[in-house]
């Protein structure tokens, strides 16, 4: 079952000359695939993630997530689509600093309108699965980078999305934590059947993925 499908996906920027950040990408990701998107800095990894995540609009081409074309969706509908179908893991974790780990993860379910008791049950379950129960009452400032990224993963998967997009999730972590984080994402992908697309140039990450897509100058070079 195809979770992600792009057709001739392109993103151009005009800065005097036309810069092709993503250039005619045709890509398919199946349910539960654990894929690394690799390439040097400026190769277009982040732009491609943004296009697939509906954060950026393509200049040309189409993006289908779970069979739905998102490239032409209006902003409001797209926001709700992301809320239900996508999860994000960022390089700098990006947890809400004023909320505890529990509240950060709960926020997604709160936005989805999940009742309080169910929210509590689902958040605690994911905390247990990720082994971070003891972090529940801590705010981000009282957590290490590795702990914050675990909470960020919990936030990305608590609502069991179709696709998780992770952008350099290990860039700010030491080796031990980086490996642990990749293993954690892999485990979640296998156990929950969630598709992961991880933009990275960290070998500790792509060595552990089943599929590696190499992108250079906005084009898929190897798959």
């Amino acid at each position: 079952m195809e979770i992600v499908k792009t057709e001739n996906l392109s993103k151009y920027y005009t800065d005097g000359t036309i810069v092709k950040a993503v250039d005619g990408v045709n890509l398919t990701l199946k349910k539960g695939e654990f894929t690394a998107l690799v390439g040097p800095s400026g190769s277009g990894k982040t732009t491609l993630l943004n296009l697939i995540g509906g954060i950026d609009k393509p200049s040309e081409g189409k993006v289908f997530i779970d069979g739905q074309e998102i490239s032409l969706m209006p902003e409001k509908k797209l926001a709700k689509f992301r809320l239900h179908k996508l999860g994000f893991v960022f390089q700098s974790f990006n947890l809400i600093p004023v909320l505890t780990a529990y509240e950060n993860v709960e926020l997604i379910l709160l936005f989805q309108g999940v009742p309080k008791n169910e929210r509590r049950e689902r958040v605690m379950r994911i905390f247990k699965e990720l082994g971070i129960e003891e972090l529940a009452d801590r705010t981000p400032s009282k957590m290490s980078g590795g702990q914050q990224q675990r909470v960020a993963i919990a936030r990305a998967i608590v609502h069991t999305p179709s696709l998780v997009l992770a952008d350099e999730p290990t860039a700010n972590l030491d080796s031990e934590n980086a490996i642990a984080i990749v293993e954690l994402m892999k485990k979640m992908s296998e156990e929950k059947g969630i598709t992961f697309l991880i933009a990275t140039h960290d070998s500790r990450v792509f060595e552990r993925t089943r599929r590696i897509i190499k992108i250079i100058d906005g084009k898929i070079h190897e798959d």
Binding site: G53, I55, E75, K76, A79, K80, R82, L83, H84, G87, F88, F90, N94, I96, P97, L107, I108, F111, Q112, R155
Partner: peptide, 16 residues
């Protein structure tokens, strides 16, 4: 700004 952008990325609309 970035934090508010994260909220938008994870599913809040501009209005929210």
């Amino acid at each position: 700004r970035k934090e508010l952008a994260v909220l938008r990325a994870i599913g809040l609309t501009k209005g929210e």
